[in-house]
Design a binder for these strands. Structure first.
Lengths: 344, 344
DNA sequence: CTGTGTAAAGCAAACGGTTCCATTAGGAGG
DNA sequence: CCTCCTAATGGAACCGTTTGCTTTACACAG
């Protein structure tokens, strides 16, 4: 049988309440008693039952991560791995466990979140995406549950969130290509309902406009954060009469798809097409050629999200003048894929 | 306030036990009562408190996976990503939540596992590695806790485990090179305390001996599951007087390191050195040249592990004649890196 | 009309903790 | 010597469910 607080109490000749107080370091316990009880706990191999503790304290010391919809697909991106790594590392430092959950669609996600939060299985939630008009966010917000968004919301201003300045990041990426001498620059975007797609597209537009460069509609292609999207975008671009000499892709995975396609068609990177993309996942420097990428500090993003959430769980009253939006700095890593000046 | 089973009971004019029984589909509840109660639960937005439920049922409907801390360093992240993806997918299908935990070292891992299991926070554990003489395994085994090993144990025969036939896989990889005409074949291994390293090395040996080929000690190099190890192994091999014409690497990441090194020295793959490695991570086909690799079905490995564990949790008495070791098939994917017959 | 079987629902005791309130025993102050 | 205070501990209720054991209420056979 598992040993409970009562067993320890009996053997130590004290009451259960005393044992409980020893456990929580209550001030009014004599040093002597405390030591005696601790020895006995050790002897008997006592481990507190978290469920019982949670039941009364209404606290679980765990948080949960909601993976975006097509968890099975999007999950194949190293982006999430890094994020999770950051979250798990920081959480365990704060003594919190991390639960991973996902749903096949927005409705399932909502059910899962509701079950976990209302069922008191977790204390808070980290959302790994930011969609437009998200029902999950509405639920969390109106229920007053602690949560943090990796990304930003289009509706609520006062939400706790950790994000990059994606507009600026895209601006930087595009300007890098422009400064290398490119004038015809394409853009491969992500799903339009994701805020990050829109932000990056906006940054691209700003940069192009800023330098007075032409922006054709056909140079902007929508896709997913997947290789295939890159592959398709590539074949579309390369068949254009006056095709771009460079492109900005919304995610490194997309670049890999582009690379694969160009390779098949015997085009050279960066000579025939220069590429810059986002996220700087660990594989970016391993491809051939290595891909120039905006490092957005994924691990840091996750680490901070966890920190901010747990802090909010522990004292929810910290909106006194402090900001709710945390911006993680980005930085352009230039690699071979963009190191070429077009012959024009 | 949150609504409890008692609130529902009061409003429905029945006892709490009745509500509980409605919830669990007890047979001796009249259809009428059942319907009435369900309507009221819906109205009041009732969600069961998992903690209370777990406390009495001694069951949590969640499992946990232990990431080896060295995982972050030793393994290619994509491997774990895939594994986790498989686990989370299958677990959520079975209605289980997944908790992620890790420790900085074996002692910390043990503490975490003990806290989670003895503290009744999870019902079972998936270990994502198999080391020699593992204390965590000893703990789980002697405590009679449900767990499954991805990999295999060197000590216990009757442990639940999901693995590849790594010996055979390495045998196949090596034989592929032999059949291409290679006779001097090197091997880059992983840390010797990991069972997978040993198994693959053994398979390599078997294949070489099987064909009566010479095996020099200097053709076998130990490393980690990292690029750097490949880089180092490469420069060692290429400086050998009678150097190998091909090599088998224990992980794709190692191959990338080899590739990078060879590229720097202007050697050609596969002409100067043919390569085959393991795991077939998504990037394997993106490198130049694409790498021949043994696909070990990582996702499937994770999916099966979760399945087997949950089954064992739900009815622990299934060792009646059935095997405890599940072997996921592997398959050699031949790509450019090994498509060349040595001129000799 | 009484005894018996059965379906439906209620009672109350757990599960393993925490915490408010009460109790006890000295020691200080008057 | 008697209060009164305080430090240290004990007692018991409670957190939200589940479940074994009763109880209730009929229907039906004898």
């Amino acid at each position: 049988m598992t040993v409970t607080i009562k067993d320890v109490a009996k053997k130590a000749g004290v009451s259960p309440s005393t044992v409980s107080r020893v456990l929580s370091g209550h001030p009014r316990i004599s040093l002597e008693t405390s030591r005696k009880v601790k020895v006995i706990m050790e002897e008997m191999g006592y481990t507190p039952n978290m469920m019982a503790k949670s039941l009364v304290s209404k606290t679980t010391n765990s948080i949960c991560i909601i993976l975006p919809k097509p968890a099975e697909e999007l999950f194949s991106n190293l982006f999430f791995m890094e994020l999770i790594r950051g979250i798990v590392t920081q959480s365990s430092r704060s003594g919190y466990d991390v639960l991973i959950s996902s749903g096949a669609n927005e409705k399932e996600e909502l059910e899962a979140v509701s079950r976990l939060l209302k069922g008191r299985r977790v204390d808070g939630v980290i959302l790994l995406y930011s969609r437009k008009d998200d029902a999950v966010i509405d639920f969390l917000q109106s229920g007053g549950y602690p949560f943090v968004l990796v990304g930003r919301s289009d509706r609520y201003e006062d939400i706790l969130s950790v994000d990059n300045d994606n507009i600026m990041a895209a601006y930087d990426a595009t300007n890098h290509l422009i400064s290398m001498g490119h004038e015809r620059i394409g853009f491969v975007s992500g799903p339009p309902n994701l805020i990050v797609s829109r932000d990056r597209l906006e940054g691209y537009r700003k940069a192009m406009q800023g330098k007075g460069l032409e922006m054709k509609d056909e140079w902007i292609v929508e896709g997913e954060f997947l290789q295939d999207s890159g592959y398709r975008a590539m074949s579309f671009f390369m068949n254009l009469p006056n095709r771009p000499t460079a492109l900005v892709a919304v995610d490194d995975m997309v670049s890999f798809g582009v690379l694969r396609g160009l390779n098949e068609l015997k085009y050279k990177v960066p000579e025939d097409l220069a590429i810059v993309s986002f996220n700087n996942i660990p594989l970016s420097e391993l491809s051939s050629p290595p891909i120039s990428s905006i490092d957005i500090g994924i691990y840091h993003l996750g680490y901070t999200a966890s920190q901010v959430l747990i802090q909010n769980i522990q004292k929810p009253d910290n909106q006194d003048g402090y900001t709710n939006r945390f911006v993680i700095p980005h930085r352009l890593i230039v690699r071979e894929s963009s190191m070429h000046t077009p012959g024009n």
